[in-house]
Design a protein around this nucleic acid. Structure first.
Length: 258
DNA sequence: ATGTCGACGAATCGTCGA
């Protein structure tokens, strides 16, 4: 089974890229972030033609997440029952896969803007609540994947400028402690379970020719629970869509189980 | 040096968020 995550930065704009990518990469489950559309505008039919069903938590202009799946999506949960939130950032569902029943949690984590800001405080509260939710989900579903745009670099390998960006947004000790606390629930970073090229990133600013200059951050993750670790076969970042005309600023991250 | 996108409301650009 293959599971992927991709922040598409407007599904309205990126739908052709996503459909093309699924034709070339027919993963079982794809988590999308930053749909920037309400559910009534979601192109269910286009995905259905490729054999996918979708569960959507939409929002106008900002945020918005979806699960795109070849397998039936059961027990769909939208946002966090422990954390009332006007922003659409989380969607979870259960799939019966070749590696068993897997709970898939897909998140668009808070950006945080700047350390010390109100948005940064919201990021911390949001992750406190997410940790509680994932802990409960893990108790009910030993095989669990938590994936999405985390908006956090885990360590210096995940940033093109570890010195210049030390304690900058996406690099703060507080954010990294929050990510570590999630991992400490019993998850592994699928990408780091395997040898990877240096300067592997999942996001590049649109400005400054950042992609061409390899100036990116790895802020998109697939985390797998211990019960799935031995089934984990590979994980990679697919930079091909970042090279297309009018790309998303993020690249898909793919994890292979089975 | 604040550089690029995308959405929005009210324009044909300014503002916000990333």
């Amino acid at each position: 089974m293959q599971i992927a995550t991709w922040n598409v930065n407007s599904l309205t704009v990126r739908l052709p890229h996503v459909l093309d990518w699924l034709r070339a990469n027919p993963v079982e489950v794809l988590g999308l972030q930053e749909l920037k559309m309400t559910e009534d505008k979601f192109p269910h039919e286009a995905f259905a033609e490729l054999g996918y069903q979708c569960a959507v938590l939409g929002q106008k202009t900002y945020n918005g997440v979806a699960l795109i799946s070849r397998l039936p999506l059961a027990d769909v949960a939208r946002n966090n029952p422990l954390f009332p939130d006007e922003q659409s950032r989380l969607i979870a569902a259960t799939v019966q896969s070749a590696v068993g029943s897997v709970r898939v949690v897909n998140g668009y984590f808070v950006n945080g803007q700047e350390p010390g800001s109100e948005k940064f405080a919201y990021k911390m509260r949001w992750m406190d609540a997410l940790r509680q939710q994932v802990q409960a989900e893990l108790a009910a579903h030993p095989k669990l994947v938590l994936m999405g745009d985390f908006n956090i670099t885990q360590d210096d390998r995940d940033t093109y400028d570890p010195e210049g960006l030390r304690e900058a947004i996406h690099h703060t000790s507080e954010e990294r402690a929050q990510l570590q606390a999630l991992i400490d629930l019993g998850l592994v970073d699928a990408f780091r379970c395997f040898d990877q090229p240096e300067r592997s990133y999942s996001w590049w600013d649109y400005r400054n020719m950042a992609f061409r200059r390899k100036q990116g951050l790895r802020i998109d993750y697939v985390l797998a629970s211990a019960a799935l670790r031995e089934q984990l076969r590979a994980c990679h970042i697919d930079t091909a869509p970042r090279r297309l005309e009018k790309p998303s600023d993020h690249a898909p991250v793919v994890a292979v189980f089975g």
